[in-house]
Amino acid sequence: MDLSPIQNALSSGSYATIADTCDELMLQARSPPFRLASRGVRHQDDWPYAVHLLGYIFVNDLNSARFLWKSMPMENKESSPEVVAVWKIGKNIWNRDYSRVYEAIREFEWSAEIADMVAAFSEKYTEKMFQMLNSAYSTISVEEVAKFLGMSEDKATNYSLQHGWKLDTSCKMLTVQKPITVTSQRLLGSSKLQRLTEYVFHLEH
Score class of each variant (00 low, 15 high):
R66I: 08
K88I: 05
L36D: 12
K77A: 03
V118P: 00
M72N: 01
A29M: 09
V83Q: 04
Y102P: 01
R100M: 13
E82W: 06
G55D: 07
A120W: 09
A112G: 13
A37Y: 11
I57Y: 10
S11A: 13
I93T: 03
L10N: 12
M117T: 06
P33G: 05
P32I: 11
S38Y: 13
Y56W: 12
S71L: 07
R42C: 09
L54T: 01
T17I: 13
S111R: 03
S99M: 04
A9F: 03
S79L: 03
G40I: 15
W87E: 15
A50Y: 05
S99W: 00
F108H: 06
M26H: 12
E109F: 10
E103V: 07
F67C: 00
N63G: 08
R106W: 05
I18S: 05
Q44L: 10
D61V: 05
F121R: 01
K77Q: 03
W94L: 14
E103D: 13
V118H: 06
S71I: 09
N63V: 04
I93F: 11
L53I: 01
E107V: 09
V101W: 11
R42H: 06
S71M: 10
F34T: 15
E78N: 14
M26P: 04
A65M: 01
D46Q: 09
S80P: 00
Y102D: 06
W47I: 05
L62H: 07
S80V: 00
I105N: 00
L62K: 05
A119K: 07
V101Y: 10
M117S: 09
A115F: 08
N60G: 00
E75Y: 05
L68P: 03
W110N: 01
N95F: 13
Q7C: 02
S99I: 11
E103I: 03
W47K: 04
T17Q: 12
P73H: 01
P73A: 02
T21K: 02
L10W: 07
W69F: 09
V41F: 05
M26G: 13
R42P: 04
K91Q: 11
S80G: 00
S122Q: 11
G40M: 15
K88D: 14
R39V: 15
K88C: 11
V86Q: 14
P32E: 14
F121Q: 02
R42Q: 10
Y56E: 08
R106S: 13
A104Y: 00
S99C: 04
S11C: 02
M117D: 07
S64H: 12
A115E: 12
D116Y: 04
S11W: 00
S64I: 02
R39F: 15
Q28E: 12
I6Q: 11
S64E: 14
D116H: 02
S64G: 10
Y98T: 12
S111E: 03
D116C: 06
F108Q: 03
